[in-house]
Amino acid sequence: MVPLTISDLQETAKVIRRNSIEAIYKAGSGHPGGSLSATDILVSLFFGGVLNLDKKDLKSEKRDRFILSCGHVCPSFYAVLARLGFFNEDLLGNLRDLGSSLQGHPSSVYADFIETSTGSLGQGLSVGAGMALGIKFKTPSSKCKIVVLSSDGEQNEGSHWEAVMQSAFHKLGNLCLIIDKNRMQVGGETKKVLDMDSLSAKYKSFDWEVYEADGHDFRSLLSVFSRFNEAKDKPKVVICKTVRGKGVSFMEDNLKYHSCTLSEEEYRKAMEELC
């Protein structure tokens, strides 16, 4: 796919935000805050020429692997995949429905376009590291990369840091972690729950290649993501500064919209803002 221009990325992001909100509204529950904060990151990855995927050959050896470790923000991920033609966009209306391939958290039991089931925090990076090791072992010359999207709340999980240590120890240069640092988690502001503000210093001290980006600026995101393909003997992490609920004024930085049922009025107002 030809990467989109910045203005097209901005337009696409708006569509993704609309489709995510609509899906959550129809589902009767979901996580709008994180879905909106992660949208521009996802749009950059999937429409900005960062990930090499083949929707006709989901298990192609040559594909990049993408893991949504913070699985609860999947509405925007699903909206991205639908926009790319992985499945019909109408299916977004079935989010969280009985028997749907669009489960409330990404599930490989129900969908073949999901690399690994997530939703239980703290596991995505371990699986990604296992894939990165496996690919390095079977095809040392492989150019495939494994991209894992995590959240700042997920940084609380101890098992995540086990994987952080392991990835640096095995010099997994083909492993790229992105942190959607929207500064909020279920219990409130991350700095008041378990302060993870010095993430950059933490990853540096764990011997990772650390980058920072404005998670809502496509130029900033693409400039950093372009470095994913650089040969390094260290895993890479991009800490993206974002706003929870980005794009819908009354949802921005508002704890209520971590996980909720959207009323008809909230839905209507959000859609008006996302026009």
Partner: peptide, 19 residues
């Protein structure tokens, strides 16, 4: 290392790559 939870994820990733 002494990190069992991560071992499971690593193994899952390796298995998904055919090992």
């Amino acid at each position: 290392g002494v990190a069992e939870a991560n071992m499971i994820g690593l193994a899952a990733g390796m298995a998904l790559e055919g090992f």
